[in-house]
């Protein structure tokens, strides 16, 4: 199977690594080869966490600039920052609820305008699926479920050969028992986001 390359970018604490783990488990259940790598050295101190997940026949665990087929961003400015990883046929899925970096919070830097951000991403990639995943996670029962909401939207695109059932099975085994119901609900809400939402 030809490799499909997925980049997930998030801010430390947003649950990027758990999302990768759930996806990896779903890939195992689907008989899909997968390798991934993560950079999370300073995550707890507010830095960016980036995961690279390569599905299919490839040995590399990292993704070069211009080679991500899918980009999932948990935070809009981080999605924009990772645009160099994309190419013109990349699908971009992003949460639109900002977590302004501290530099912005103290007035040393300007947070990008969200409408302009969407226009820019749309003009440079194949499609953009952008929505408020925080609001959805809250309505599923916990703001912590932003990661799973976004996995819902990712699986809905059909770009990865992973079915809804397999991903739900992975949520049941790989997320905390007390969070499974919230996560399944979050997944369903994310899965309900259709590809033409912009």
């Amino acid at each position: 199977m030809k490799a499909t390359r997925l980049i997930i970018v998030a801010v430390g604490g947003q649950g990027n690594l758990l999302a990768s783990k759930v996806l990896g488990e779903a890939a195992l259940l689907s008989g899909l080869p997968v390798r991934m790598s993560e950079i999370h050295g300073m995550a707890q101190r507010g830095g960016v966490v980036e995961s690279a997940i390569v599905f299919g026949d490839a040995k590399s665990t990292i993704i070069s600039d211009g080679e991500a087929d899918v980009l999932v961003g948990f935070e809009p400015s981080e999605t924009l920052r990772a645009l160099n990883k994309c190419h013109q046929n990349t699908t971009v899925i992003t949460n639109m609820a900002p977590l302004p970096p501290f530099t912005v919070a103290i007035g040393r830097g300007t947070y990008p305008d969200l409408e302009q951000l969407k226009t820019l991403i749309r003009s440079k990639t194949k499609q953009l699926i952008a929505f408020d995943a925080v609001e959805m996670a809250e309505s599923a029962g916990s703001v912590m479920a932003v990661n799973i909401v976004l996995l819902g939207a990712l699986i809905r695109t059909g770009i990865l050969p992973i079915t809804r059932e397999k991903l739900e099975a992975a949520i049941r085994t790989k997320t905390k028992a007390s969070f499974v119901d919230v996560n399944l609900k979050a997944f369903a809400l994310g899965f309900g986001v259709s590809a033409d939402v912009q």
């Binding site: 801010v11 300073m42 707890q44 101190r45 507010g46 830095g47 960016v48 070069s64 600039d65 211009g66 080679e67 400015s77 981080e78 924009l80 920052r81 645009l83 160099n84 990883k85 994309c86 190419h87 013109q88 302004p100 970096p101 501290f102 530099t103 912005v104 040393r108 830097g109 300007t110 947070y111 990008p112 305008d113 302009q116 820019l120 440079k124 990639t125």
Partner: peptide, 22 residues
């Protein structure tokens, strides 16, 4: 042919997110 990243000249400067003391 090298992979082509999108042309990013028109992307505004994105504020940095340096690690920070908690």
């Amino acid at each position: 042919t090298a992979p082509r990243s999108p042309e990013l000249g028109d992307v505004p400067e994105i504020p940095q997110r340096p690690p920070n003391l908690c």
